[in-house]
Simulated assay, not measured.
Amino acid sequence: MALIANLLILLVALLHLYFLVLEMFLWDKPKGMKVFGLTPEKAAITKVMAANQGLYNGFLSAGLLWGLYQGEAGFDVKVFFLLCVLIAGLYGAMTVGKKILYVQALPAAVALVLLCLTVI
């Protein structure tokens, strides 16, 4: 169970690294505009905001990777950062679009449940 939980946590961390790349470097490029449904004008206006958002996704990824690096001792770190991802995903689903619920919140929730089952 611990291996599956850690693999899912790794997946969540890699997703957030991907979000970092999309938001910080590809926001106003064809790939980023397609993913986020942006026009070139909207991408140009929101580029700095998106880069800031991407940086935060990088911090979430770094925290999850840090928790994984610590092994069993990183349990609390993993729980904290998974909760951060889950809350951000729920908020994003309510304010931006329901797709975020499935792309961000659901993987974090499943990883959190599996992680908690490792201590039972």
Rank of each mutant, 00 (worst) to 15 (best):
M49K: 11
G54I: 14
V12S: 08
F36W: 13
A62T: 01
G63I: 13
L14H: 05
F25S: 14
K34C: 04
G58R: 12
E23P: 06
N52A: 15
K42M: 05
L11M: 08
L55S: 07
L65H: 10
P30M: 06
D28Q: 13
E72H: 01
K42I: 01
Y18N: 07
A50D: 08
V35T: 11
K47V: 02
N57L: 08
S61G: 14
G74E: 07
T39M: 00
G54R: 14
Q70Y: 03
G74W: 00
Y18V: 02
A44F: 04
T46D: 13
N57H: 11
V21C: 08
F59G: 06
G71I: 11
L20P: 05
K34D: 15
W66F: 15
L38G: 05
G58W: 03
K29P: 12
A50M: 09
T46Q: 10
M33K: 04
P30T: 04
D76E: 12
A73S: 11
L20Q: 09
G37K: 00
E23D: 11
V77T: 11
G67H: 07
A44Y: 04
L55Y: 12
F59Y: 09
T39D: 02
Y56K: 12
L14S: 08
F36H: 06
H16G: 10
A73W: 07
W66K: 03
W66V: 13
G71A: 08
Y18P: 09
W27A: 13
V48H: 02
A44H: 13
A62N: 05
M49F: 11
W66H: 04
A62W: 09
N52Y: 02
A62I: 15
Y18A: 03
W66E: 09
N57R: 02
L22Q: 13
L60A: 15
D28A: 02
Q53K: 08
E72S: 15
G71H: 12
Y69E: 03
L15T: 11
A50W: 00
N57P: 02
A44E: 05
M33A: 04
L10Q: 10
L15G: 04
E23A: 07
L68F: 06
K31Y: 01
E41N: 03
I45W: 00
L26Y: 00
Q70M: 09
G71N: 12
H16R: 14
G63Q: 15
G32D: 07
G32M: 11
F25C: 10
K34Y: 07
G63Y: 09
G74N: 04
L65S: 00
D28L: 02
G54V: 12
K29I: 03
A51S: 11
K47W: 00
V77L: 01
P30Y: 03
G58D: 03
N52L: 13
L15V: 15
P30D: 11
Y69G: 08
